[in-house]
Amino acid sequence: MSVVKMKINGKAVSGEVEPRTLLVEFIREHQGLTGTHVGCDTSQCGACVVHVDGKAIKSCTTLAVACEGATVTTVEGLAKGIELHPMQAAFKEHHGLQCGFCTPGMIMSAIDIVKRNGKNVSEEVIRRELSGNICRCTGYHNIVKAVQAGAANM
C-alpha cells in the first residue's frame, strides 16, 4: 500500500492504494464519486473517461499510483452549483441520452473534442473522435447533435 495524492475537481485528495488500484476504482470507491462508470473489461467502451492533466483518458486503464500529483476532472466537476456545464445542458436539451450509462464518458470526451478542435467542430470529426465511446441506446445521432450544440455554447 502507498499513499497517492492528486487533485480531483479542484479538491486536494489523498488515499492509500495498492499498486493495482485503477484510477477509476480510486475515483468511485475511495472518493465516492460514482458519476464515472465502468462499462467493460477491455478498455473499449469509454464509460470511464475523465480528464487527467487536461486530457481525456480511460480511467479503467490507468493506475491510481501513476496519477500522483495529477489534476483530475470527473463529470461531477463540470457544473457550477446547479448550473449545468454547456455540454451537460446540450445533452439534456437534445436528448443525447437514454439510460445514461455512457453519458459521463460521452460528455468528458465531448469537452475534450471541443478543446482540441474548437467550437465549430464538424459532425465528421465528432463522429470520428467519439469512436472510443460506445452507446448501446441512442444510435448516436442525438449525441452528435448535442455535442455540436454544446460546442457552440462552450
Binding site: S43, G46, V49, K55, A56, I57, K58, T61, T62, S109, D112, I113, E129, L130, S131, G132, N133
Partner: peptide, 9 residues
C-alpha cells in the same frame, strides 16, 4: 490508432 483516449496514452 484506436480512439482519442488510446492516442492520449
Amino acid at each position: 490508432i484506436g480512439g482519442v483516449h488510446v492516442r492520449h496514452k
